[in-house]
Amino acid sequence: MSLPASAPAGVPTSEIDLFAPKVLEDPHRFDGELREIGPVVWLEKHGVYAVTRHKAIQSMYADWRNFHNFGSPFNPDTLIPAVIIIDNPPQHTRLRSAIMPYVSPAALARYRKDFETTAQLLIEQILDEREFDARDLAASFVLKAFPDLLGLPLEGRHFLLNFGEAILNTLGPMNDLTIKSLERAGPAFAWVQSECSREKVLPGKLASKVYALTETADISEEEAGLLVRTLLAAGFDTTILGITAAFYGFTQNPDQWQLLSDPKMVRAAFEEGIRYFPPNRFGGRLVAADTEFEGAHFKSGDRITTLLAAAGRDPRRWDDADVFDITRPARSHLSFGHGIHACLGQVLSRTEYDVLITALFKHVARIEAAGPAERAVNNVALGWGKVPIRLTLR
Rank of each mutant, 00 (worst) to 15 (best):
M100N: 10
P101L: 02
A107G: 00
I86A: 06
P90Y: 12
Q91T: 08
R112A: 02
S104E: 00
Y111C: 11
A109Q: 04
Y111D: 10
P81A: 12
I86T: 08
R110E: 06
P105V: 04
L108P: 03
R96F: 03
I99F: 01
Y102N: 03
D87P: 12
N88R: 04
P89F: 07
A109E: 06
S97Q: 05
V83G: 05
V103C: 00
I85L: 11
I86D: 15
L95G: 10
V103M: 01
I80A: 13
V103A: 01
M100C: 11
D87K: 13
M100Q: 11
I84W: 09
R112N: 03
A82P: 13
Y102K: 13
A82E: 10
S104M: 03
I80R: 07
S97P: 09
A107N: 01
A109W: 06
D87N: 12
N88Q: 13
I80T: 10
L79A: 09
A109K: 01
S97E: 06
A107Y: 00
A107S: 00
V103L: 01
A106N: 07
D87E: 10
L95E: 09
I99D: 02
R110I: 08
A106Q: 12
I80M: 14
H92Q: 08
D87M: 13
P81Q: 12
I85G: 07
A82H: 15
L108W: 04
A98R: 03
N88I: 14
R94H: 10
P81D: 13
I85P: 05
N88H: 10
N88S: 15
I99C: 00
P90Q: 10
S104I: 00
P90F: 05
S104G: 05
S104W: 01
L79M: 12
A82F: 14
L79C: 15
M100A: 13
H92I: 04
L79V: 15
P81Y: 05
I99W: 02
T93W: 14
M100K: 06
S97F: 10
P81K: 03
I84P: 12
L95C: 12
P81T: 07
